[in-house]
């Protein structure tokens, strides 16, 4: 994968309010993920999550040639979500993205919030939801697992790419009508690589340790459908609202067509960066905030409902 097409947003590309919204979203969902995986794994949580995070990090090195000197490699959110459930995948991917930023400066620190949300949370939940849905439709066969995992891996990457394009557009870093098709188009291809590797890995695991392939249950998947639905709704809302608002890019094109751009003055800059068009600021902010509140409410409802439906398991102790 070419670095320009990567999903790791460096600092400077997200405005401060957008980055802060990403941090809030990350903190809220990682907090839930910590509790859910503790319910599921008990005291095995720390060694298993830690070593699997190191696994994803190392597995991202394993590449295969695609064409024209480019190569595909794994991102990994969907694979871990299929094997251990979406909440475990959130923790694993959060650790991976966090260490990439802290240790290797791959992705910014201020942008860390949305990098985790995109690559860890969105890809894990959207991927898992697609996988679980396919298995419910097609039954519990390996064919269903393979199709579901492939669909989940592809959709997870694509959703993460769309989310990245939206965040860049809201920050005023890249116009939506350029960023969206570019990101979505490139990652439609990247997602195919992700899907192929994910299925290949699952096929290998099925031959060697089929016991690991049982669909994760209980706390591992609690509220997964709700969170995935919430994230998709939030994505759809943010996708629609900037277009429905006074269309920045359309406006500019009109200005250029009519020669206004010659007369345009460089805008008076505000303290907030890149908000060169003042009227978009409020609309964009409300959009993200409403999206986040929506996600949190939906996640909260899902969490509460699941709590009511499934009685809480006691933490496992002892036995290794």
């Amino acid at each position: 994968m070419l670095p320009i097409l990567a999903l790791h947003i460096p600092d400077g590309f997200l405005s401060v309010p957008v980055a802060a919204a990403g941090w809030l979203m990350m903190l809220a969902l990682v907090g839930v993920a910590l509790r859910q995986t503790r319910d599921q794994l008990g005291e095995r949580q720390i060694p298993l999550m830690g070593i699997l995070a190191a696994f994803v990090f190392a597995a991202q090195m394993i590449n295969f040639p695609v064409a024209g000197g480019t190569s595909g490699h794994l991102i990994g959110g969907a694979l871990v979500a299929v094997l251990l459930g979406p909440w475990a995948a959130v923790l694993v991917m959060t650790s991976v993205v966090g260490v990439q930023a802290l240790l290797f400066q791959d992705g910014g620190l201020l942008a860390l919030g949305f990098n985790v949300v995109n690559m860890g949370i969105i890809s894990a939940f959207v991927g898992y939801a697609a996988y679980a849905f396919t298995r419910r439709m097609m039954g519990e066969t390996f064919a269903a697992t393979a199709v579901g995992a492939a669909a989940g891996a592809w959709l997870g990457v694509e959703a993460a790419a769309i989310a990245t394009a939206l965040q860049l557009a809201i920050s005023g870093t890249s116009p939506l009508d350029v960023a969206l098709p570019a990101m979505a188009g490139v990652h439609a291809l990247v997602g195919i690589g992700e899907a192929l590797i994910t299925v290949g890995a699952l096929a290998f695991i099925r031959q060697t340790r089929p016991d690991l392939l049982g669909q994760p249950r209980g706390a591992a998947t609690r509220g997964a459908g709700w969170v995935a639905a919430g994230l998709l709704i939030a994505l759809a809302v943010t996708l629609v609202s900037p277009l429905a608002d006074p269309n920045l890019d359309g406006l500019e094109r009109v200005a250029e067509d009519h020669g206004f751009s010659e007369a345009a003055q460089p805008p008076a800059y505000e303290i907030l960066p890149d908000y060169t068009v003042p009227f978009i600021e409020d609309a964009a902010l409300t959009t993200i905030v409403s999206g986040i509140i929506g996600v949190l409410i939906v996640a909260g409802i899902g969490f509460g409902l699941a709590r009511l439906v499934a009685p809480r398991r006691k933490e496992t102790t002892g036995a290794g």
Binding site: R44, P47, L48, G50, I51, L52, A54, F55, A58, A59, I62, N63, F64, P65, G72, H73, L74, L79, L83, G193, L196, I197, T198, V199, G200, A201, L202, A203, F204, I205, T208, R209, L212
Partner: peptide
């Protein structure tokens, strides 16, 4: 090629899981 890479990832996963 992708399946070979996938097998390697699966193998690495099992090694990591069992190590954990």
């Amino acid at each position: 090629r992708a399946r070979v890479a996938g097998g390697m990832v699966g193998s690495l996963f099992l090694r990591s899981y069992e190590r954990s």
